[in-house]
Amino acid sequence: MEEIVFNSGIMQLLIALILASTFLILGSTRLYSCVKAFGIQSFLLACVAWVVGFSTGKIDLYIVAFLTLIIKAAVIPYIFIYIIREIKVKREIELYVGISPSLIIGGVLVVISYYLIRSIAVITELSSFALSASMSLVSIGLFIMISRKKAIMQMLGILIMENGLFLGAISLTHGMPLLVELGIFFDVLIAVLIMGILIFRINKTFETIDTDKLKTLIG
């Protein structure tokens, strides 16, 4: 029954769109567009969860989808925008790696994770597609954190990785047991809050949130 659900057109479309949104984040140079793209990605994730929930009939997936929608698509982007407005940070993102090279690297990462999951070759055709999407989401998230200088972008990178994992969880095992799922959401929310506090504190002490300046502790 999973195979039918998974290779239905909607799922493939949704996963492809999620991948597209990550590339949107990779390619944008302005903070606001990144946050918006993250919002879209979370929304798409909620739809994936809803579709899987609908097809497997597990009620808690509905709850999970609803939660993703509220927390990840609405609350977290709001927090981001609040931080950006509050710190009056320059809108551009300084990068170590230019836009076009980071896009190429993003593409390479997707191919590697696809080849990687294929070589493990353990799951059915489509869910392996979903798993490789989640793997690439995780690696692109990590790449964003490595290549972007702004502290906020590093926060965003973590959230993208977390989205990737969520996608992986759903595609592999239709979501973890509800209790664990709730715990993860709760943790992610607190993590974002604390990182927000930290960013305010960095801004207060370093007068900038460019992590390049954070190099005093050496050796």
């Binding site: 502290a151 993590a191 990182m195 930290l198 504190r201 960095i202 502790l217």
Partner: peptide
Amino acid sequence: VEAAWKYM
């Protein structure tokens, strides 16, 4: 603060 951020 720097240590906390990196830790986090």
